[in-house]
C-alpha cells in the first residue's frame, strides 16, 4: 500500500471515530427526559383526590362515601326516591374527575369494587387504553368489611 493511501485511511478512521461520538451524543440527547414534576407531585394526586372527594357533601346532604355505601347496601334510600344511588355516585365522581384531571388532559381510571359483590358502578376512565405507564394509584376503603374499595389510577 502506498503512503498516501495509508494517510487517507488514517483520516477515515478519525472521521469514523468522530461520527460514532456524535451519534452517541445525539442518542443521549434524544432520550426522553423524565419530568421531575411528574415523579414528585403525582404520587399524591390520586390519593388526595380520593380523600377529598369521598368526604365531600353532595347536594343530597350526604357524603360521597356514604352514597357508595348505600349503593352497595339493600336500602338505597339516601339519594331520594327518584335517583339510584349508584348512578348518583357515578355521576358525581365522573364530574369531579373531569373538572380536575380531565381539564389537565390526564388519562385516568377509577374503579369501585367490593369482594363478593357484583360490579354496581362501571369503570370511569378517560384515554386509559393509550396509557403506557401509570402513577402510584390511590385507594380509599369504605367499611364495614369486606370494604368497598375505590381505586384511582392516573397516567404518567
Amino acid at each position: 500500500m502506498r503512503k498516501a493511501q495509508t494517510e487517507i485511511m488514517g483520516i477515515v478512521v478519525i472521521v469514523i471515530i468522530l461520527v460514532i461520538g456524535m451519534f452517541f451524543m445525539i442518542g443521549q440527547r434524544l432520550k426522553p427526559r423524565e419530568s421531575s414534576k411528574g415523579s414528585f407531585i403525582d404520587p399524591k394526586l390520586a390519593q388526595s383526590f380520593l380523600n377529598s372527594l369521598m368526604n365531600t357533601k353532595t347536594a343530597q346532604n350526604v357524603i360521597v362515601s356514604d352514597i357508595l355505601k348505600d349503593c352497595y347496601s339493600n336500602r338505597r334510600d339516601l339519594c331520594g326516591n327518584k335517583k339510584d344511588c349508584c348512578l348518583y355516585a357515578e355521576e358525581t365522581m365522573r364530574t369531579a374527575l373531569e373538572f380536575t384531571l380531565g381539564s389537565q388532559d390526564r388519562a385516568y381510571r377509577l374503579t369501585v369494587s367490593k369482594k363478593g359483590s357484583a360490579e354496581l358502578i362501571p369503570e370511569i376512565s378517560k384515554n386509559w387504553e393509550a396509557c403506557q405507564e401509570n402513577e402510584q394509584p390511590g385507594f380509599y376503603y369504605i367499611p364495614p368489611p369486606p370494604p368497598i374499595v375505590v381505586k384511582l389510577e392516573i397516567c404518567k
Binding site: K37, S48, S52, L53, T56, T100, Q104
Partner: peptide
C-alpha cells in the same frame, strides 16, 4: 400551573365541599 384536589371544610355549618 399545578392543580391539587382538596377538601374545603366549613366547621360552622359542618359541611365538606370539594375544591381545587
Amino acid at each position: 400551573n399545578l392543580q391539587f384536589p382538596v377538601l374545603l371544610k366549613d366547621v360552622v355549618e359542618n359541611n365538606n365541599h370539594f375544591g381545587v
